[in-house]
Amino acid sequence: MVHMNRWVSIREKIVKNTLTVFALSSLLFLFLIFIFILIEGLPLFLKVGLKNIIFGFKWAPTKGYFGIFPMIISSFLVTFGALIIGAPLGLSCAIYLAEYSGKRLKMILKPALELLAGIPSVVYGFLGVIYIVPIVREYLGGSGFSLISTSIVLGIMILPTIISISFDSIMSVPRSYREGSYAMGATKWQTIFKVVLPAARSGILASFILGMGRAIGETMAVIMIAGNALKIPTNITDPLRTLTGNIALELAYATGDHRLGLFSTGIVLLIIIMALNYLANFGIKRRI
């Protein structure tokens, strides 16, 4: 008996340690990605100067100009544009799903949303080029490859993120909060607006921030629709180039300092996304 017990306990230990190694490997990958991007990208920061990269206006890497300021601004513009379109739509949908829709409709809508999240971004980009770009060209002018087209497509792409996280946080508001409000003679909408949404506030904010993270990191759909011009857009119909687009467009043929410049772009992107994720986690933790 003693013998068998010992074998069992060794087996338990092996399982535990193996799982620990596998679990930590994802952390290792993150760490490695970070290290490699830093190793490749940092030397250029030292050579050209942080200011000339981040606040530089001119991107001509073969001539020694590595300014990515227009791309940083463009990335934020499309991200906020996506949020302006995606946040109200997504939040309304989450409220409807959580508070108004019947069980049957919920059973149809939730899987549909998951499908929306699963559509490859190149398909979004394709549909954007075929439908949204011509509409923008016709009614708003310009080439159609623009800030507004990109924002619309990204706004739709971030819907699943916003809806599912907002929905969860609205559902996690205790039923007793709602009952207290109803008992005081509040209508359903008054209860949602004054009690449920404030209580779910931090989760809803987190959903917006994670949606932003998705929008700022999106590449394929953006390259296809944004027009990729190297300037700060002054109008919603102007074309623009984002940080992600810059890397994807040029990496194939970049060499030397040019290639390092793209890694610098990557560092900036990584830092922005990490900051957004940190903010979102902060929001979610406060809720719990």
Partner: peptide
């Protein structure tokens, strides 16, 4: 809704709004 404005209810567990 208007009925509940005439009838106040106090529950077992007090749940103040935040």
């Amino acid at each position: 809704v208007s009925l509940r404005r005439r009838i106040g209810t106090v529950f077992a567990v007090p749940i103040p709004l935040q």
